[in-house]
Write a protein that binds this DNA or RNA. Structure first.
Length: 876
DNA sequence: AACATCTAGCTAAGGATTATA
DNA sequence: TATATAATCCTTAGCTAGATG
């Protein structure tokens, strides 16, 4: 067996034998003796461990270290009296005193450890007193005594050749080893050298306060880190402070590499508890103070001068931050992938580890030329997982071609992976209707430039939807169509590709966009928008299609509730659309059965089971998950495979997600969907009623919602092997094929088309309906696979539709027949919608069973804002 | 006996989550 | 109540020693 390993981290070793929860580090007798004194009174842990440690302390109490005058019998005898004298104890007259050490450990440490921030004046006074006492006593000075790094005659000096790293995450006793403190390069370890001395000596290392006079740190201790090749060392306790001792050998030129010293964090509660016994009110007062999480390594050694008199040299390292370092910032989604060179649009980023000082960086590195712009996020919307900032103008506003730059986030000295971001030439027409100007720019449009219109929040049957309350000028930005995309399409960049593609093309040259970047998003077709005004009026596109320019009315504070309700209704109508499509696809009607491939029936069966048993449904869904996943091959169908519905009038008439379908198929769907309309209306009404008790704004829910989305995205909750942009074509029929899904009023009652559905679900209460709608929308908006499929399909359709244009498609046109294309598209949509709706129903039933209805009624304004427009964010 | 491969256990992290101030 | 920080929990890459063929 390895001796190095067996003597190493006891915490890790014992941890594996501990039950979960607060583990008790059951140290071995040998290690306990050298471990930091635990709190015998700690009520929460270290029960046996502390007892062992106490007994271990008893054994070490009599240990005599070099240079320590503990051997004096008189001292030992008078221990009981003198131990309560901090100054005396701090002078290193003796170590822990057996039982007394346990009981009065705090007093022993007090003088030495209160020298830092913690304890304030009390600690400083004690430290001064201790230092004076130290100087007045013979023998080696205490750990808090002020010492020089040079000998009195100046001949000998203790030097730090290599400083420790600035941050080293200390470990808790319940944790495994976190290794030795590295050097500031991160590759080696601190190096200390004794210069001008010719006799063997011992280097002592302990953890001291971070500022001011050197004194043992209250909350941090040195701990021995034993590696196979680490420098041999000893660990002992001096007055409650762990001191690591390493030999300074002539053979190593009196130089020591401190590769065996780690930092251990003592729990605040333990420390305070100890001090509480002896300090009483002072400890209580100190408890409220901010505790330092920094420390310094203190090196000292004892030498003999020319006269044979002992002298202690001491040197202190730079500060070490002992907390867990913040994680690397990560951008998961962004609301824009491109922006006119003039900048000014509002950019939302979803991600992780956004700290307060986070900056969004736009950078171009190309052929030596470098441009970089750092943007400070909106303080108001800077959270750990999301932020809002303003896209800065590009270095030149008169670019003729799209420029790809890197977009990343700097936070905590670290940078996220770069994402591709495209600056496009200034659009000849006014800014796209769906662009969101940043407030800083919104009020100062360029001369001759129309002020960007606010995003249309939906123009449903209830009339134009007003922007969300209290955020009059801050609207969700929508991905800007990129007229300079190779296909003349907006490039919806999946994060997956943006990270990698950009890295590959980091030179910043205006190369043709990678294939992944050609995935376009139908919702961004501005040309569609203008033609879809009528469909917009139906209220299906409150998220994405501005449609007829809504009057840029500045919302007052009075309109909030009404606006919110309207926003909700639009969302519900969008959801309605989802359900319509779903119902059409899931319908057992032979006319639509053609769209249902084999995987579809299975989830439907599962859904029925779910209605009667939540548990059963969960199981089924888990089992069905793989089936519902799309093969990668489906994700990016051959571009040229997809036809485009000529009946829609070609590309200019808007994008049709079902463009690959035959007209007959489309007609069937239309009819089917039309019959759903009445039910949809009923659902909307129910959902609206559910919002009647709308709660006051709760900003925290925005975070929650955003977090959940990020989590979904990160965890791949959709079960998709590859993430993709949002399925807005389904949620925004006006941008994709409104004629298909326009539900006329007065349709028959065929909701969900689930013949065997239990009655309770067949006619669910409003709350359940609302939940289903919400969940469906949620899933659909986060179902990256479905979106990738659909988006790719539509992209392909556009490729075909634009083949007549001057720009040829980058991908060679495939020779596959149109039917194959049609099937690919319909299968993709079918699968995705199937999964989404199944899951939605599952969620709704689960919620109904386990929790009160939350849904729309409990959403804050910001919640709603985010909810209503989830497609603001791109996806991986 | 020497060598290659496999396996188990461990360290040294890093990150996430939960508890607490 | 919201936020920041502390404390704990979980996971993993890489390394090493021992077992095995």
């Amino acid at each position: 067996m390895r001796t190095w390993a067996s003597s190493a981290s006891w915490a890790t070793r014992t941890r594996t034998h501990m039950p979960s929860g607060r583990r008790t580090p059951a140290r071995t007798a040998t290690t306990a003796a050298s471990a930091p004194t635990p709190s015998p009174d700690c009520p929460t842990r270290r029960t046996t461990g502390s007892r062992r440690a106490a007994s271990g302390a008893a054994t070490t109490a009599l240990r005599i270290r070099a240079g320590c005058s503990i051997s004096s019998p008189s001292i030992a005898e008078s221990q009981g009296k003198r131990i309560q004298e901090p100054a005396y104890r701090s002078c290193g007259k003796f170590g822990n005193g057996g039982k007394l050490a346990g009981k009065f450990a705090a007093g022993g440490k007090l003088g030495g450890k209160l020298g830092g921030k913690y304890g304030g004046k009390l600690a400083q006074a004690l430290a001064r007193r201790r230092a004076l006492a130290a100087m007045s006593h013979s023998g080696p000075p205490g750990l808090a005594a002020p010492l020089s790094c040079k000998s009195r005659d100046g001949a000998v000096e203790l030097q730090i050749l290599c400083q420790p790293e600035t941050q080293h995450r200390a470990r808790y006793q319940t944790e495994g080893s976190r290794g030795a403190v590295k050097d500031n390069s991160g590759n080696g370890f601190p190096v200390v050298k004794l210069v001008g001395y010719d006799k063997p000596a011992v280097l002592q290392v302990f953890i001291g306060t971070d500022t001011g006079r050197v004194a043992p740190h209250m909350f941090y201790q040195a701990c021995r880190v034993s590696g196979k090749n680490s420098t041999p060392c000893k660990e002992r306790k001096d007055d409650g402070t762990v001191v690591i001792e390493i030999d300074l050998e002539p053979g190593k030129n009196w130089q020591v590499t401190c590769d065996c010293v780690g930092i251990l964090k003592e729990r605040n509660v333990d420390v305070e508890h100890r001090f509480g016994e002896t300090l009483g009110g002072a400890a209580h007062a100190a408890r409220g103070k901010k505790k330092s999480t920094r420390c310094r390594m203190v090196f000292r050694t004892e030498i003999l001068d020319a006269a044979g008199q002992p002298e202690t040299l001491q040197v202190c390292s730079t500060q070490i931050i002992c907390t867990q370092p913040p994680g690397v910032p990560e951008v998961c989604r962004k609301s824009l992938v491109s922006c006119p060179a003039s900048g000014g649009l509002e950019l939302y980023l979803l991600g992780k580890n956004f700290l307060k000082e986070t900056r969004v960086v736009f950078r171009l590195q190309q052929d030596g030329a470098k441009w970089e712009e750092e943007v400070v996020p909106d303080k108001e919307f800077l959270q750990q997982t999301h932020l809002v900032c303003c896209v800065p103008p590009y270095q030149r506003a008169d670019i003729a071609e799209t420029v790809c730059v890197q977009l990343f986030v700097r936070s905590g000295g670290k940078a996220s992976e770069p994402h591709a971001f495209y600056y496009t030439p200034a659009p000849p027409a006014p800014a796209p209707l769906h662009c969101t100007p940043h407030p800083a720019h919104a009020h100062a449009p360029h001369a001759g430039e129309e002020r960007p219109l606010p995003m249309c929040w939906g123009v449903g049957g209830m009339g134009a939807l007003m922007p969300p309350p209290q955020t009059p000028t801050r609207r969700s930005s929508i991905i800007v169509p990129d007229p300079h995309s190779p296909l003349g399409l907006k490039s919806e960049v999946a994060d997956e590709s943006s990270q990698h593609s950009l890295l590959e093309g980091a030179d910043g040259e205006d190369k043709p966009l990678p294939d992944e970047l050609r995935i376009m998003d139908l919702r961004l077709k501005s040309e569609v928008i203008s033609r879809d005004a009528q469909q917009v009026a139906l209220g299906y596109d409150m998220k994405l299609s501005p449609g007829a320019p809504a009057p840029p009315e500045q919302p007052s504070s009075l309109v909030s509730f009404t606006q919110t309700l309207q926003a909700i209704q639009n969302q519900v109508q969008t959801d309605k659309m989802v359900e319509s499509v779903t119902a059409a696809i899931f319908n057992t009607d032979p006319a639509t059965q053609m769209y249902v491939d084999q995987p579809i029936l299975t989830p439907m069966d599962s859904m029925r089971q779910l209605m009667s048993s939540k548990a059963a449904m969960d199981t089924d869904m888990k089992a069905l998950g793989p089936e519902l996943m799309m093969a990668d091959g489906l994700r990016a169908p051959e571009p040229a495979l997809l036809g485009y519905e000529a009946g829609a009038g070609g590309r200019d008439d808007g994008f049709n997600p079902f463009g690959a379908m035959t007209k007959m198929e489309a007609s069937h769907i239309k009819q089917r969907l039309a019959r759903q309309s009445a039910h949809m209306e009923a659902l909307v009404e129910d959902a609206m009623k559910a919002t009647a008790a709308m709660l006051p704004a709760d900003a925290a829910k925005l975070d929650e919602l955003v977090n959940s989305r990020v989590d979904d995205h990160l965890s791949g909750a959709s079960g998709s092997p590859a993430a993709a942009p949002l399925p807005d074509m389904l949620l925004s029929p006006t941008a994709t094929g409104p004629c298909l899904v326009m539900p006329p009023a007065g349709a028959p009652d065929e909701l969900m088309m689930m013949p065997d559905m239990p009655s309770s679900v067949k006619t669910p209460p409003a709350a359940v309906k609302s939940m289903i709608l919400n969940a469906a929308a949620e899933i659909l908006t986060s179902d990256s696979t479905m979106n990738a499929l659909v988006t790719s399909a539509i992209n392909t359709a556009n490729i075909l539709s634009t083949e007549s244009d001057a720009s040829p498609p980058a991908e060679p046109a495939a020779e596959a027949p149109l039917s194959a294309m049609s099937q690919a598209v319909s299968q993709a949509v079918t699968q995705a919608v199937s999964q989404a709706v199944s899951h939605a129903v599952s969620q709704a039933v689960s919620q109904e069973m386990t929790a009160p209805v939350q849904g729309l009624t409990a959403m804050s304004d910001q919640d709603l804002l985010s909810y209503i427009n989830p497609s603001t964010f791109d996806q991986v």
